[in-house]
């Protein structure tokens, strides 16, 4: 079984700061990580390989430094890593990103065998659109299985897959076919600790670096800024609320009095609420 998993290197957004004057993201010194949602997909891919045999290829599109993310993925046990990097990709929106990635996946398929499953994360923590997975599926004509909570079974001979998919208000049990694209839900598994051999292997083995041409992309107008229908026109800070919270003073009061005072302040501001609460609570 050949599995391709798409990962994205993202800034560790817990450490993102915004420049107070220019309102731009200050990236200097912000550590990067593998998009946390992608680790669930990676672990699932590794488990399937361990169970069914085969290979896991990790793929990312990004600047040269995205190689770090791929090395980490190799350290977890992926077999092969491809970095799609080219200045033509700069400024890609999700349509252009899924175009480039799907071309690269096709090329990976030609070179190393057509993938049975392509994995993606549910979404990223920076762009956070959840659009790239469906974009890849559509372009490669893969069956699209998003928000998968569990892969229930795979029958390689019959090319059949059964999954549990999160949907509004419940879980769908779906039967579909390989090849398919799966976006994995978070919390479905936990990324393994890579073995020593994998760690050594990751340090030794090369990451394949592909330009647009290497990936077989001929139409560069579909890449990067030019291939992106969306245009970011303006970036700005959200308006701050002028006033701070009105504080309920606690000094020299009993807990009971303070609580009564807060409750009174709530009902002063939202007079209709008292009736509603009284009837909702059904105490």
């Amino acid at each position: 079984m050949h599995i391709v998993i798409c990962i994205k290197q993202v800034p560790d957004s817990a450490q993102i700061r915004v420049h107070p004057v220019t309102n731009t993201i200050m990236r200097q010194g912000v550590p990067t990580i593998i998009n946390p949602y992608d680790l669930f997909a990676l672990e699932e891919a590794l488990r399937l390989r361990d169970a069914y045999g085969g290979e896991v290829t990790v793929l990312t599109m990004g600047p040269p430094m995205a190689e770090d993310a791929l090395r980490k993925a190799l350290g977890y046990g992926a077999d092969r890593a491809v970095l799609l990097t080219d200045r033509y990709f700069a400024g890609s929106d999700t349509l252009a990103t899924s175009f480039a990635l799907s071309q690269a996946i096709a090329k990976v398929g030609e070179t190393y065998g057509a993938p049975d499953i392509v994995f993606a994360g549910k979404q990223t923590i920076d762009g956070d659109t959840a659009q790239v997975g469906p974009g890849i599926a559509k372009r490669l004509d893969l069956l699209q299985l998003t928000y998968v909570a569990k892969i229930a079974s795979i029958d390689l001979a019959a090319r059949e897959i059964k999954v549990e998919r999160r949907s509004e208000g419940g879980t769908q049990m779906l039967k579909s076919r390989l090849p398919c694209l799966i976006t994995m839900l978070e919390g479905t598994n936990e990324i393994r600790r890579g073995s020593i051999e994998d760690a050594l292997g990751a340090a030794r083995s090369g990451v394949l670096k592909w330009s647009a041409a290497d990936a077989g992309i001929e139409d560069l107008t579909r890449c990067g800024l030019r291939g992106s229908p969306t245009v970011v026109k303006r970036v700005f800070a959200p308006a701050a609320r002028a006033e701070k919270a009105v504080q309920i003073d606690t000094a020299e009061k009993t807990l009971r009095d303070t609580a009564d005072e807060l409750m009174a302040a709530i009902f002063t501001r939202q007079p209709a609420l008292e009736h509603e609460l009284a009837f909702n609570s059904g105490a």
């Binding site: 957004s13 993102i16 915004v18 923590i125 969306t230 026109k233 700005f236 959200p238």
Partner: peptide
């Protein structure tokens, strides 16, 4: 964008 620290118009 970035969890609400900035907004962008697209």
């Amino acid at each position: 964008t970035f969890g609400g620290s900035l907004l962008c118009t697209i």
